[in-house]
């Protein structure tokens, strides 16, 4: 937990990225959400680390409850802009020895941040990452350009869908009472303009050349069946990233931290134990 009050600049960064800090440990564990959702997607995994770590979650600009005022089209025309978000948070909170956990594209965003400031990060955990989503000569990413164009179309057609998913959550779920208490929270809210630009940067992007530059020890969590980051992509990541460990977990889909939180938690815990 933070014991000293934050400076004005730090507070502005905390507000800008809707940073939430929990946990009893001292070593920071920073959770970065992927494309299409917000920090709420970590709710099944992050609490498991609160006993031993300082658990920090945040939303990228235009996601969750962040204000759009800080959105800058030039900055976010590149994944480096998002990596700068991660670094800005680390600077503002004066985080060191950080374990960065990133889902989906935040795996690569985390890698870029760690390449830029290697001294700040001790471990990188990438959940279902991919360095390139489109197929290329001798490389299977899973998608063709037309697929991505159709995705942008689908998102455009879902303007109301993306916008209305901010509606207050009114839930009557006896199995998960903890969800019911969060009336007024937004779920997977993404501003459409932000989501469209993010999708273009993510899905048209190519970060394969960055993998060999990553020196921070990393864990790649791969599921058995993932159309967005297929098993071949996990292998490619592991083969091209120095100091990386590939862990294929017994789960399917692109969101193991939601569909198989226990397996995901175990995988991360086991990895952190091994290295310590």
């Amino acid at each position: 937990m933070l014991t000293t009050p934050l400076s004005a600049t730090s507070q502005s960064v905390v507000d800008r990225y809707n940073v939430t800090i929990t946990g009893q440990g001292t070593q920071p564990m920073l959770f970065a959400h992927g494309f299409g959702c917000d920090q709420s997607m970590w709710r099944f995994v992050a609490p498991a680390f609160e006993a031993s770590y300082q658990v920090i979650c945040f939303d990228y600009i235009g996601h969750g409850r962040t204000s759009m005022d800080a959105y800058n089209r030039e900055r976010y025309a590149s994944l480096h802009g998002y990596a700068q978000d991660v670094l800005d948070i680390c600077h503002a909170l004066d985080l060191h020895d950080v374990i960065l956990v990133g889902h989906s594209v935040s795996g690569m965003i985390g890698a870029l941040a760690a390449i830029n400031e290697p001294d700040r990060f001790s471990r990188l955990v990438m959940v279902s990452p991919s360095p390139r989503y489109m197929n290329d000569e001798g490389y299977h990413g899973g998608f063709e350009r037309e697929d991505i164009e159709e995705l942008l179309d689908t998102m455009d057609g879902n303007f109301f869908g993306w916008a209305t998913s901010t509606a207050p959550a009114i839930m009557a779920n006896s199995e998960r009472p903890e969800l019911g208490n969060e009336l007024g929270l937004t779920f997977c809210h993404t501003d459409l303009e932000v989501a469209l630009q993010f999708a273009k940067v993510v899905f048209y992007g190519d970060n394969r050349k960055d993998l060999p530059k990553l020196q921070t020890p990393s864990l790649i969590i791969q599921t058995l069946e993932d159309i967005i980051a297929p098993v071949e992509v996990g292998d490619y990541m592991a083969n091209h990233t120095p100091n990386s460990t590939l862990h294929v977990i017994d789960a399917t889909g692109h969101c193991p931290h939601m569909s198989a939180p226990n397996e995901t938690i175990q995988s991360i815990e086991q990895y952190l134990r091994q290295l310590n």
Binding site: C37, W162, A169, C188, I227, C255, M258
Partner: peptide, 12 residues
């Protein structure tokens, strides 16, 4: 995978 599944899982 990126939006509907998280939405249904979190929001039911």
């Amino acid at each position: 995978q990126t939006h509907i599944y998280p939405l249904v899982t979190l929001y039911n």
